[in-house]
Computed example of a mutant assay.
Amino acid sequence: MGKSTIAAKYVFEYKTICYFNNLQENRNSPELFLQSIRQQLINRYQLKDVDKDKDDLSTLLVKTTAKLSTNAKLIIVVDALDEVQQEPGGENILYLPKILPDNVYFFLTRRRYDLNKERLYTEGLKKEYLNLTKYDQENQHDIQKYIRFCLENDPEHKDGLQNWIETKKITSDAFVNELATKSENNFMYLRYVLPAIAEGKYNDLNLTQLPQGLQDYYKTHWERMKMNDSSKKIRVMILFILVEISTPISGEMIYEIINEDECDVQDILDEWTEYLKPQTIDEDICYSIYHASFLDFLKAKREFNPTRELFEEVNQRIANYLE
């Protein structure tokens, strides 16, 4: 829906204190959140009387408000509460305070959730909600504008997109309108599908056959890779190692777990570049699933009987490796 983009735009314009949780990068714990916010507050407001190891967030906020000028506000942006890793309990998510000092505000984002599982308790504070699903018309306009930009101005993809349109003998307007509908107002869908079209990955499909929504896109990709085919066993094992561990993992660790040729494993990781996020950790190139929604889709594949036995094998190999 664009929640992270809105949060990032707000931070960029107003230079607010912020923390962006990220499941794939393992930056989603209360401890890392507090460490980051504490350091930002200390640096920005030149806090001198702070116990860097013991002061909780409530104490820090009180000390910070003493530094605020008249009528100034302290606003802290926290993105992706749904990606936070925290043990169940009666505490707030990220152990956020139940009471805030005057002129202190939290701007929080999360994916759709059950209100009964909000885990955000307050005492005498006003909470306001903005549901982005109510802005379908505005989102649709932005989606169409983005597609047209990629089609006409994106130096990396415009030639491939225009060639696809000409080959299919359709108009630019028809392409923009149909793809906007298929996106279901999800920019992540466009981030995947537009480059795929430009690169010729959908040359065998016409406009109406393109995936409907992000989930259908994932399903289409899964089927095209023939992940359930017995001949693709190494691909299935690599992918589900990424799913089971769910934090960045090196290519070396992957091929040691599955006991396959290093070059074969690396070729597959390189082929999946649009779905994986490579990053260097301790001089090793590590990989993780690019986005939480794709990880959710892959986890749901555990319900498919054809791969259940293979899951057990993958989990056992991971356990053996860790031992």
Rank of each mutant, 00 (worst) to 15 (best):
K168M: 02
D82E: 13
A198N: 04
N28V: 05
T59I: 15
E83T: 02
Q162L: 10
K67Y: 03
R235A: 13
S231P: 01
W272L: 06
I254L: 05
E138T: 12
P211V: 00
N116P: 04
D154W: 08
K134H: 15
D159N: 13
T109M: 02
E178R: 12
D142C: 08
Y113E: 11
Q137K: 14
D159H: 10
S69M: 14
K169Q: 14
Q40E: 13
Q316H: 13
Q40R: 10
T307V: 11
N177I: 07
E184M: 11
N163E: 13
K98F: 00
N163R: 13
F106G: 07
F175N: 01
G89P: 09
K299W: 02
G90H: 12
T273F: 01
D204N: 10
S183C: 04
H221V: 14
D284P: 04
Y14W: 07
K126P: 06
M237R: 09
L242N: 03
E128V: 15
Y135T: 03
L132I: 14
S231E: 14
S293M: 12
F12L: 12
G2V: 07
A174Q: 10
L41M: 05
P248T: 00
E87S: 07
Y287S: 12
K73A: 07
A292C: 06
V265S: 03
I238C: 09
A198V: 11
R148L: 15
T64K: 05
L81T: 01
F294H: 04
K67S: 11
K15Q: 12
M227V: 10
E244N: 12
R111D: 03
H221Y: 14
E283Q: 12
T220K: 09
Y217L: 09
L108N: 01
D79C: 12
N153D: 14
K168S: 02
D154Q: 06
D267S: 12
S250R: 04
N320S: 13
V84C: 15
L151D: 00
D229V: 01
Y14C: 07
L130I: 15
W272I: 01
E178M: 09
K226Y: 04
D159Y: 07
D204P: 05
L47Q: 04
D270R: 02
Y255H: 14
G2W: 14
G213S: 04
D79N: 10
K126A: 09
G213D: 05
F240M: 05
M253C: 00
I99Y: 11
T247P: 09
R224D: 10
Y19S: 08
L60C: 03
I93W: 05
E260C: 11
F33D: 00
I197T: 06
T65Q: 07
C18N: 15
Y255L: 00
S36D: 13
Q137L: 13
L60P: 01
V236W: 05
N22C: 14
T65R: 07
E128C: 09
K145S: 15
N22F: 06
Y146T: 15
V314I: 15
D216C: 13
L161V: 10
V11K: 08
V314G: 02
V236D: 03
I99M: 09
I281G: 13
L96P: 01
L214N: 06
D55R: 06
A319Y: 10
Y255W: 07
R27W: 04
A198T: 10
E223D: 15
Y255M: 00
V104K: 06
A66W: 08
D55W: 11
K98R: 14
L120G: 01
